[in-house]
């Protein structure tokens, strides 16, 4: 009886894992398929990857994505770390609400509110800057949560000891807090980098016409037709974010286990 229920549990779980992985595997496999149609396997080729390298629009979009991701995750790491430390250390009940609501609400709401704000209030031309600001806004909360979790797992004694030994708040931060939260900062940076390079919904609203990112480029391609070039760019993007997530998981295992 026990054996059988165990067996059913494994079978059901394997089916769900297959549900998670088969679709992505199909995307990867067909990126190497020597056929215009994504219908049946013809033969192995790297032609779609070569085509990508020659696609100026795609390369420009990739460049934009990387630049925005680097800048936005740098700023978000600094601001998010400050928010995380403040949430851990000070009694400011409104702060978690302000920091975490942008993470919890549907992305479309953040997207349209920023669109309205940039166009109607600031009268700004949408583009690089508006995308950058939007990405920082949704990344801060993730970094803050990671940093706070790291601080919560630490012995308060080390900070008290630093104070008792006469360290100023700045010295305590520089010599004690910062080295201790460094893994969380790196994990937070990688997390926001991944979120930024992956973001479609919010970017879609604040990008305007001038600047394209990789997800926007993919969107306009798959709206039109299914081509193996999309499979190729998807596969590369998957490899990149996979590496990031694996590194982040290594650095902050307790945080990642709890999910987003």
């Amino acid at each position: 009886m026990r054996r059988r229920s165990q067996w059913i549990l494994w079978a059901a779980s394997l089916a769900v894992y297959a549900f998670l992985y088969v679709p992505l595997a199909v995307v990867v496999i067909f990126s190497f398929n020597d056929s215009m149609l994504n219908a049946e396997w013809v033969g192995f080729t790297l032609a779609w990857y070569e085509k990508l390298l020659g696609d100026g629009e795609m390369l420009r979009a990739a460049g934009n994505s990387v630049a925005i991701a680097l800048l936005s995750s740098s700023v978000a790491t600094v601001l998010g770390a400050m928010a995380g430390i403040a949430m851990h250390r000070y009694r400011m009940p409104w702060l978690p609400l302000l920091v975490l609501t942008p993470v919890a609400m549907p992305e479309i709401l953040l997207g349209v509110s920023l669109l309205l704000f940039f166009r109607q209030v600031l009268d700004l031309t949408l583009g690089f800057f508006s995308i950058l600001v939007a990405h920082i806004t949704f990344s801060i909360g993730f970094v803050a949560v990671i940093v706070r979790a790291r601080l919560a797992g630490m012995d308060e004694g080390v900070f008290e000891a630093a104070r008792d030994l006469g360290a100023t708040p700045w010295m305590t931060f520089r010599r004690v807090t910062l080295p201790l939260i460094l893994p969380a900062l790196v994990a937070g940076f990688l997390m926001s980098f991944t979120l930024s390079i992956d973001d479609f919904v919010i970017t879609f609203f604040v990008a305007g016409v001038g600047v394209t990112t990789l997800p926007l480029q993919i969107y306009s391609m798959i709206k039109v037709a299914v081509t193996p070039e999309v499979n190729a760019v998807s596969t590369l993007l998957m490899a990149l974010t996979l590496t990031m997530v694996l590194v982040a998981t290594r650095l902050a295992p307790d945080v990642m286990r709890r999910g987003r």
């Binding site: 998807s234 993007l237 996979l242």
Partner: peptide
């Protein structure tokens, strides 16, 4: 960890 659009595309 794969892009949201990639998962829809699949």
């Amino acid at each position: 960890a794969s892009n949201f659009l990639v998962r829809i595309y699949a």
